[in-house]
Design a protein around this nucleic acid. Structure first.
Lengths: 345, 345
DNA sequence: CTGAAAGCGCTTACAG
DNA sequence: CTGAAAGCGCTTACAG
């Protein structure tokens, strides 16, 4: 690789000191205009690029944030990252992005490698595998600030940006109640997944407030797979008293449910109304379009970034805090019962 | 932020020189075992992390690759990045990931900022807006190696990893021919998009080889939007001689076509068989499942990375070269005509 | 086996 | 207005 131009090269060529070049390049006062111009001209001609490693080293500041997410293939994370980047750029920071592929080991490695002087703080969403938090506590002990979002652990006292999952599920369930559903089922995730459990909680609370009894047979836990969703939905359909409303904890599962309903010649929303979570692009692509709870992804990213930068710039005043953001229920065909007169599909 | 532990701290505490600490930490020969052990013990106790900025600076090597993609929200890019990361890790490199959001300006900024000493080379897929290549030529002049994939420009003599789009479209079209389609339409992208044009070329070639005439009215160009796809499909449906086969240049457009067919009570694949490109997850989620040309995303990532690292490590022997990878047609319900006996949907 | 010294590319008091 | 010097945290010949 060709030698990159340094201030030393410029200084030598112009017969001035590197200090002068450094000052001229950064428009500092007390530099003779002609000198500055000569430096700038040569810098341009030679396409000089300052070495940020050197600058960061001397300033002990990188103005860079580390972002660790499980998988950018999930629309949710890709979208949150956009929010992070927007806010970071606005405040003069760069971001280093790393995905763990839901692997604890890669989470460990990413965190460790970026914490060797490259970033001033982290925005983290934990991998599914992570159940040991020592690596995070070590970072904390070293005084490196971090902010969590979405995937969380109560083991750590750090800033967090979450979403009101209980409230969101409550709203989604109530929406079905208002749409004349009398027996509302829930397709939940695995029993140990906290987000799914929070949504279960909101669902139960809504049923209670609606004066509905709770029928355990209408609550089904399962893996996050299309196949499992189809299977669970088929099970619900075959109950002696099948549901007329369904809350599904994620869009991908909801797609499976809709497939299953079609196979069973059950109409959505006429025979059963459906609401799910995340508002991924797929919701508007399938037929019927799926009603879904939108997460404020951009805002999650911006808020997390803002919290982190505040902590970096004012460690004393900014202790760990938890922000809970509002969701928004996007109502579409799959649950719009009273407005649907004829069948389109 | 708390002061991070340095080798100086360790040296002072152990009353040895920093050189000795540095050597002990890296398991160099000629260090007294007791000295080494003392250093390692203290480093562990204090959770010492070497500052990579300093190391990179003195070694003039970062062992880091810059990856610039338009949008990680596209499944294609997210997946290629996984391939890049896998290969990079395997060869002892890190990657710095940056998305441009299809903005020329952000492409410029990312490239510039990472090229200030942070990375040793780039893997790039150009933003849609980019039509001026000066920023890339500047990098080239500075001797920074780069490899392109997917989004390309003939203006630059660099290594590229592409996919055989002509061949893929040929295969997709021929697949419809074999499935008894007699009038095959093409839903293409905007006229200036090279990938779309290559697919058009393959489509035309296949029609020719199949002995079909070319009917310009069956070829429709348009924006990459769901609405536009629906509109174009409606137009095709209303032709006096409507098509019985359809090649669509992208899955998202194909979803629009299927919506339009449903609205017109046209059965897929019975009345019209459909094939599209990219094999995004949506293909298996919609009904009917969409036949689609899969790109070897992981392999694209691995190959690009491998080319880049070779160039970094052996600039002389590794001049720019173009690799063309094979695609794979995934056949699903939307085009499986002769196997479908009854209608399911 | 260990240390002093120079240096990676830059910034910043301190003098003049 | 400019330069010499020290230093950011590390590595590496060179001596001993």
């Amino acid at each position: 690789m060709a030698h990159q131009v340094t201030i030393k090269d410029i200084a030598r060529h112009l017969k001035v000191s590197v200090a002068t070049v450094s000052r001229a390049l950064r428009d500092m006062p007390d530099i003779k205009p002609e000198t500055r111009q000569a430096v700038l001209d040569l810098a341009k001609e030679w396409d000089y690029q300052p070495n940020v490693l050197a600058t960061s080293l001397v300033k002990s500041r990188t103005k860079t944030l580390g972002v660790i997410v499980p998988d950018l293939g999930y629309h949710f994370f890709a979208s949150v990252v956009k929010g992070i980047e927007a806010e970071a750029i606005a405040r003069g920071y760069s971001v280093l992005l790393s995905q763990t592929g839901e692997s604890y080991e890669r989470e460990l490695i990413s965190l460790q490698s970026l914490s060797r002087g490259q970033v001033e703080g982290f925005i983290i969403s934990l991998s599914q595998e992570t159940s040991n938090y020592e690596h995070l506590k070590r970072l904390q002990r070293r005084g490196i600030p971090m902010v969590f979002f979405d995937r969380d652990t109560p083991d750590l006292d750090v800033s967090k940006v979450m979403v009101d999952n209980v409230g969101a599920a409550y709203e989604a369930t109530m929406h079905l109640v208002k749409n004349q559903c009398k027996r509302i089922a829930l397709l939940a995730g695995p029993k140990n997944v906290s987000v799914s459990n929070l949504r279960l909680e909101g669902y139960l609370k809504a049923l209670q407030d609606a004066g509905f009894g709770i029928d355990e047979s209408l609550i089904i836990h399962g893996e996050y797979s299309l196949e499992k969703a189809i299977e669970s939905t088929n099970h619900l359909v075959r109950l002696s008293e099948p549901p007329d409303g369904l809350v599904v904890v994620s869009d991908r599962l909801a797609v499976g449910s809709i497939k299953a309903f079609k196979q069973n010649n059950i109409r959505v929303p006429e025979d059963i109304a459906l609401v799910s979570f995340n508002d991924e692009p797929i919701c508007t692509l399938v037929t019927p379009a799926i009603s879904s709870v939108a997460q404020p992804t951009l805002d999650i990213g911006r808020t997390a970034t803002s919290l982190l930068i505040d902590q970096i710039e004012n460690p004393k005043e900014n202790t760990s805090q938890v922000k809970v953001l509002k969701t928004e229920l996007m109502i579409r065909e799959s649950s719009r019962r009273n407005l649907v007169s004829g069948k389109i599909d």
